[in-house]
């Protein structure tokens, strides 16, 4: 196998692309590759961009990228779109809005389907972020449609999360899902060229007043339009302020620690889950226990004790 990791670290695009594919496919060599990548990660600022379909997330990512590139920083973009539950295929169209950055070597754009992998989406995205981080991206923008739980989970791993809303039509404050409101570090009211901006700003501020969040960061409410570019420099400035804030007051290491705890917890849960499922399936090593319970020779609690006792030694190590 060609050494993708070495080539990635020297800035090779094809290796970056191939590594993300291997991660997405859950290839056998995935773990070994991530093991080698990991020491080279942790540097990039990860910005999550979420909001309802059509809110202008991709357009905003495009505009932000232009703004960030003015400072000469390298940008990575991961755009997640839903996989069709029927065919398993996906139509990934976010690039349409980002065409002008396609041939800029300081920008790397990757589209991902959700692939319906149980809880694996957040992990796959997280690992793809690691690839772009090691590749040398200073800022990584992650776009997801804020509907499902796993999309929300992705945002828990961003340093700064933007929630994109639109004035007028759809986005009334009452209809916005609670989970989305809670993860916002910055509210972005995009399409500010349309009517109804002031009202939406007022509503969000009122909501923030009525349920203030812990900590000393009050999510700012910004307005942007990707049509005329208004608000984009301010948005980037605010992202940087948020970044400095979490860097400086010592919360960053606490936040990072919490995030690592979360990731490790999820990895362990997935493995243990698989172990249990495989063990209890037909032919599995714990399957005989089911007979015992069925015959009332054992109760489920005692059976669980037995299984835990048997498996706790070295059996949890195969992903």
């Amino acid at each position: 196998m060609k050494d993708y990791v070495e080539k990635l670290l020297s800035g090779d695009r094809r290796s970056a692309a191939r590594l993300i594919t291997l991660i997405e496919n859950d290839a056998p060599e995935k773990q070994a590759l991530l093991h080698r990548l990991y020491p080279h990660t942790g540097r990039a600022h990860v910005v999550g961009v979420t909001g309802s379909p059509g809110a202008g997330k991709s357009s905003l990512v495009d505009a932000l990228t232009g703004q960030i590139r003015n400072e000469g920083l390298k940008v990575g973009i991961i755009a997640v779109d839903p996989t069709s539950p029927f065919s398993g295929g996906a139509l990934l169209g976010d690039r349409i809005r980002m065409q002008e950055h396609t041939t800029d070597r300081g920008v790397f754009i990757r589209s991902m389907g959700t692939r319906g992998c149980l809880g694996g989406l957040a992990q796959a995205t997280r690992d793809a972020v690691k690839v772009l981080d090691a590749y040398g991206c200073d800022v990584i923008l992650v776009e997801t449609v804020g509907v499902g739980q796993s999309e929300l989970d992705i945002m828990h791993h961003a340093d700064t999360t933007l929630v994109v809303l639109n004035p007028g039509a759809g986005d009334h404050i009452q209809t916005i899902k609670a989970g989305i409101m809670e993860i916002a570090d910055i509210f972005v009211i995009n399409k500010a060229d349309l009517d109804g901006v002031e009202k939406l700003v007022r509503d969000i501020r009122a909501m923030l007043d009525s349920s203030p969040r812990a900590g000393d960061w009050r999510p700012p409410v910004l307005t942007t339009s990707t049509l005329d570019g208004r608000g984009i420099p301010e948005l980037w400035a605010t992202i940087k302020t948020h970044r400095e804030k979490i860097f400086n007051n010592g919360t960053r290491s606490a936040v990072k620690r919490k995030r690592i705890q979360r990731e490790l917890t999820e990895i362990l849960q997935r493995r243990i889950n698989r172990l249990i499922t495989q063990g209890l399936d037909a032919g599995g090593r714990f399957e005989p226990v089911l007979e015992e319970i069925l015959a009332r020779r054992m109760d489920p609690y005692r059976a669980a004790d037995e299984i835990i006792k048997q498996s706790w030694k070295g059996e949890l190590s195969d992903e």
Binding site: T83, S84, F86, S87, G88, G89, A90, L91, L92, G93, R95, I96, Q99, T102, S111, G113
Partner: peptide, 15 residues
């Protein structure tokens, strides 16, 4: 693009 998606492929559409 839609046809390929419906056949289970991941289609990156660039416009």
């Amino acid at each position: 693009a839609r046809g390929l998606r419906d056949a289970g492929m991941e289609v990156i559409y660039t416009g």
